[in-house]
């Protein structure tokens, strides 16, 4: 497969997942801020913007819900916002149009075309729509993609982004503490609440809830699960294994941080939660760079890409 195509596939996976997860994070926080008259809106919004790598300028005075929603949901020029990622996913699909199935392309294309209209709806409705579109993309990927490297690159992007974003979601709660949305709400935003209740047979505690989002081996949105999925995709892309060391840098990064999580005592993990989550995000960023160096070396994708458009 062409590196350029592979890179686009990787980013389709990442962007769609990013839109999905950002919608989940924002839904929780916007609802929290509108419900809780005691919330310190400016501080919470600054913290959220910082966690989402979109720090508000220190001297800005109007850091509020509306600003967060504008920057992280509707700003099409920022490929990390919801609207921006959906637009970017579609642009990537256009570059890999001959590989991406028609169903998937049409889905991404309609999603981009509707994003402005849907953005005019209420925030909750918009977020629900984004999650639904992401689910449609996932379903089309799942049902109509051959399990060759097309599939592996998309899944790799999706899993890497999911691990990164779940870590950010956990950080929002870890940093805000008692004034955050609460672990139950976070679980709910990931669609994990009912699975969690069944796992612990209804006996809920904060430790278990945090542990579930980070460590659960079987729930597909937990960090450990997503890291495993990313590693599986990397191994499928390069099935040759060295005898006594891991040759793939990306796998090394992901494996290191995953085993740190898996083998840590839950108590230790929780006392040091923001730092641990930061290490997960750093590992995901390094793995992403390693993947880029290994599979999509820069010289192969020069201005020709723009010409091809």
């Amino acid at each position: 497969m062409l590196s350029r195509i592979a890179e686009s596939l990787f980013w389709i996976g990442r962007y769609v997942e990013r839109a999905d997860d950002t919608a989940r994070i924002l839904d929780v926080h916007v609802q929290l801020l509108s419900e809780d008259p005691w919330a310190d809106e400016a501080t919470a919004c600054r913290s959220l913007l910082a966690i989402m790598d979109h720090p508000a300028p220190a001297d800005a005075s109007d850091v509020d819900r509306a600003m967060v929603v504008r920057l992280l949901a509707h700003d099409v020029t920022n490929p990390s916002s919801i609207a921006g990622s959906l637009v970017a996913a579609r642009e990537n699909a256009r570059r890999a149009r001959e590989i991406v199935s028609t169903d998937l392309w049409e889905c991404l294309n309609t999603t981009r075309n509707q994003v402005r209209v849907m953005g005019a709806l209420g925030t909750h409705e918009f977020f629900a729509w984004v999650r639904e579109r992401a689910a449609v993309v996932a379903g089309l990927m799942e049902s109509a993609t051959p399990r060759d490297s097309t599939w592996h690159f998309m899944v790799l992007g999706q899993a890497l982004e999911r691990a990164d974003m779940t870590a950010r979601l956990v950080t929002t709660q870890a940093r805000l503490g008692a004034s955050g949305p609460g672990w139950t709400t976070l679980l709910r935003s990931c669609g994990a609440y009912e699975a969690y209740l069944r796992t612990y047979r209804g006996r809920a505690s904060d430790e278990d809830a945090a542990g579930f989002l980070i460590l659960d081996r079987l729930f597909p949105r937990s960090i450990v699960y997503a890291l495993h999925a990313a590693e599986r995709a990397l191994r499928a892309l390069e099935p040759v294994e060295g005898r006594h060391f891991v040759s793939d840098e990306a796998r090394r990064e992901l494996g290191l941080v995953r085993s740190e999580l898996e083998f840590a005592r839950l108590g230790d993990l929780l006392t040091d939660l923001p730092d641990t989550m930061e290490r997960v995000q750093v590992a995901c960023a390094r793995a992403s760079n390693a993947i880029k160096d290994r599979y999509f070396p820069a010289p192969a994708t020069t201005a020709w890409v723009e010409e091809a458009l």
């Binding site: 890179e7 686009s8 980013w11 990442r14 962007y15 310190d40 501080t43 919470a44 600054r46 913290s47 910082a50 966690i51 989402m52 790598d53 979109h54 720090p55 490929p79 990390s80 970017a88 642009e91 990537n92 570059r95 990164d164 950010r168 950080t171 940093r175 805000l176 503490g177 004034s179 923001p274 930061e278 995000q281 750093v282 960023a285 992403s288 760079n289 820069a298 994708t301 890409v305 723009e306």
Partner: peptide, 17 residues
């Protein structure tokens, strides 16, 4: 909390194109 909010987040990558 002000201290927590001041902390920078981990950068997010995007497709350079």
């Amino acid at each position: 909390r002000g201290g927590a909010a001041a902390r920078a987040g981990v950068p997010r990558a995007t497709n350079p194109h």
